[in-house]
Write a protein that binds this DNA or RNA. Structure first.
Lengths: 339, 339
DNA sequence: ATGAAAGCGCTAACAC
DNA sequence: GTGTTAGCGCTTTCAT
């Protein structure tokens, strides 16, 4: 039996609070959870003791029975400058609901992603937000049975076990491509990634939008999707090889600013006249795109809004909603000197 | 141990494993923790059951008595491109030691930082890494009594309750400044931040290095530290105002690439000849600095190494080390066209 | 070497 | 409205 003498430096538990307030531990628990059946007098006593003792409930202990008020965010990687705005939006909603977000990085590798999702489940987090996971739809669904889940950057409107929030990537790609076409260009390539993952990735959706726009303009026979290798040290076509094509493309739509910025640099270094000889449009409207020395046209996908919606959706899922929700956020074309 | 090979089912607990293996729960616990006093036969039986049932121990339950094998990383903010390399280094060490890292963002606000550190303590994380926190040294020390802690981007070599790992910011600033001086320049300013926080922040240390280098070159009367406002929407001097000084500086050492890149852009947009009229050196050797269109000279602080050392230090602190450790990592000057 | 049992700090069912 | 108590899934003595 622990006697109630408050040890200096010892951890304050619910028992100490109960004793200090002269009530039962159940009463303290109820007050904390705003549960039914607490008199005002009791509530006040307990809250005073909580303040006086600077009591903070142990999330770990809490997790064994109830909620932890923490949610996990699994990021595909850390280097995409699109992520901070996403987190801004999510954090705002979550902190207002008294939740804390904890992020982990999956490094775009399925094994790591699995182990991290498991870790979040094992920590008894109340829900997870996955950003552009590499896992298959089936696997996601099976995890979603164990923990409320919303997925960003994964187009699977048929999924029922989890929710999704996405930029309308197909529309964004159409806007970008149509803009290049409107400039009088016909030889327009798209820079994309190897098609090695599922069919739900964002760049796949962007390819569809590119092809649609080309087709609508009667340029279906000019469609060209350039799949560059993902890592510089691997084999496969390089991004810069696009500039060696004969004839050189008049326009390139890049699935991501990360690559668009690099392509733009390479082009200017080679003395290519941008946008007259070569126009470039990217995706994400990354900070670098806005630098005057870069001046990259890009699709703004409104990351803050996406993050906000994802958090809202997750909270309602945690709250008990069972019907799936699949949200598309309308993107916007931001024009700069590269096109 | 198990990285979660996607076996989904009802909740498998230690009891199920014990039953399946025909041993006691204590035995299972011991096997998992590599504790002393398990026969090879028993170990094998238990491990087979663990595999067969795809058992994963509940971190939450574990946290009530022992370790959670998860560590918290508190980031000032998410937008500094220096952070990913830091995390790369830390993750590598941590994952090899079977730990998982969970990040949270303090938004450079003390109240948020405090609440997040508390949340990490309440989740029973085994340790925390703080990156450039805004909290005072005393506050950090008081938290360090509750949880093993190492701090990055905080120069307090006298701290005893926690460890620190830093770039040798003073040296880096000296190198940058000396380089500008070596180019024959005398009117060299430093772009820094308002001196509103503690004396432990990195930019304070960088200011010292700048002043030292100027003094050594006999330019102590030319020292000028330009403190720009932190947020664009606040009042106070703007970064770009540096270019309106009369006479315009011949060189600027920026405490961070984030600002250096912006200054470089502004200068080139104004038609200023860089580096002949104005040379610029930044800090962090951010990816943007390396873009040909930018070409910013910068101090590489070797983030991966810092992250690695921080994780190592934290693990040894968790392991019981009580003597404080304060590590400085030697930076490197990377020259490009801006200087 | 092995297992029974006492908690860890909470929540929630059930008494009163 | 309030208290008692039985767990949650582990770790850790302490017997055997």
């Amino acid at each position: 039996m622990t006697d109630g003498s408050a040890k200096i430096g010892g951890k304050i538990t619910i028992k100490h609070v109960a004793q200090d307030a002269g009530v039962s531990v159940a009463a303290v628990s109820k007050v904390m959870r705003n549960a039914y059946g607490v008199s005002d007098a009791m509530r006040e006593k307990v809250e005073r003791s909580i303040d006086r003792l600077a009591y903070r409930p142990s999330t770990a202990a809490r997790g064994m029975r109830g909620r932890t008020f923490s949610i996990g965010v699994l990021l595909v990687e850390m280097r995409n400058p699109f992520l901070p705005s996403l987190m801004d939006g999510a954090q705002k909603v979550l902190s207002e609901a008294n939740y804390r977000a904890f992020m982990s990085v999956g490094e775009a590798r399925a094994a790591i992603e699995k182990s991290l999702i498991n870790a979040m489940i094992d920590l008894k987090m109340d829900g997870v937000i996955l950003v552009a996971p590499r896992l298959s739809g089936e696997l996601l669904a099976s995890y979603a049975k164990q923990i409320p889940m919303v997925v960003i950057g994964h187009h699977e409107p048929g999924a029922t076990a989890f929710d999704t929030v996405n930029s309308d990537d197909r529309l964004g790609a159409r806007m970008a491509t149509a803009h290049l076409i409107a400039g009088g260009r016909e030889n327009i390539q798209m820079a994309s990634l190897p098609r090695k993952n599922g069919d739900f990735d964002v760049y796949v959706e962007r390819e569809k939008g590119y092809i649609e726009a080309m087709t609508e303009a009667g340029l279906e026979n000019r469609v060209g999707v350039w799949r560059m290798r993902e890592h510089p040290d691997r084999a496969g076509p390089r991004l810069a090889d696009l500039l060696d094509l004969d004839p050189m493309p008049q326009g390139v739509f890049c699935w991501s600013d990360i690559h668009a910025v690099r392509l733009l640099n390479e082009a200017k270094v080679r003395g290519i006249d941008v946008p007259n000889q070569l126009a470039i449009v990217g995706y994400d409207n990354t900070p670098a795109a806005g630098l005057p020395l870069i001046g990259l046209s890009s699709i703004e996908q409104r990351g803050t809004e996406i993050g906000r919606l994802a958090a809202d959706t997750l909270l309602s899922r945690i709250g008990g909603r069972a019907t799936p929700q699949h949200i598309l956020v309308e993107p916007e074309l931001v024009l700069r000197s590269s096109s």
